[in-house]
């Protein structure tokens, strides 16, 4: 009898923790979720200013500017649309023109995208999956996997 009631209490505690975990997860998820857009989707859907999103595509050849005071500006493209990105941090070492990149940040009223993070590929064979997907849709890239 005693053992059973103890077990019931443990189950109750477990229930409380479970509810707390699910509740916390759902609340936190709402704020922390970051949607991915390709440049064409941005052109079609116009995410609002200040909304935290990710954009992926290729760094357009010849578009990288490195202002003398630091930071970098460049253009991300998927072949169909382009987005100008301003970034005042330090570009990752593997960042290169013509290569895949994912930037996280938000649009600012000037129409540029202000990036807080720039992710570049880690090795030769790596293409971020969302970027590969986006490029495949716009027909720029025919990598492995399809056809």
């Amino acid at each position: 009898m005693r053992a059973r009631s103890q077990r019931l209490i443990m189950v109750a505690i477990a229930g409380v923790i479970l509810v707390a975990a699910v509740g916390l997860a759902l609340i936190a998820l709402r704020d922390a979720i970051v949607l991915f857009y390709s440049p064409s989707e941005v052109a079609a859907e116009h995410p609002g200013f200040g909304e935290r999103i990710r954009i992926g595509g290729l760094v357009e050849d010849g578009s990288v500017e490195r202002p003398a005071e630091g930071g970098a500006n460049f253009v991300v493209t998927d072949g169909a649309a382009t987005i100008r990105v301003v970034y005042d941090g330090s570009l990752p070492d593997l960042f290169r023109e013509g290569q895949g990149v994912v930037v996280e940040g938000a649009f600012i009223p000037s129409g540029d995208f202000e990036a807080s993070t720039v992710l570049a590929k880690h090795d030769e064979t790596y293409m971020p999956p969302e970027v590969a997907e986006a490029l495949r849709e716009s027909g720029v890239w025919q990598g492995e996997g399809e056809q």
């Binding site: 916390l24 997860a25 936190a28 998820l29 922390a32 979720i33 970051v34 969302e130 997907e133």
Partner: peptide, 18 residues
């Protein structure tokens, strides 16, 4: 729905209380 990512804020918010 492709291309959703979950930011560090989620993990900080859920893991820290426990």
């Amino acid at each position: 729905v492709s291309g959703v990512s979950v930011g560090a804020a989620y993990f900080n918010a859920t893991a820290t209380p426990f």
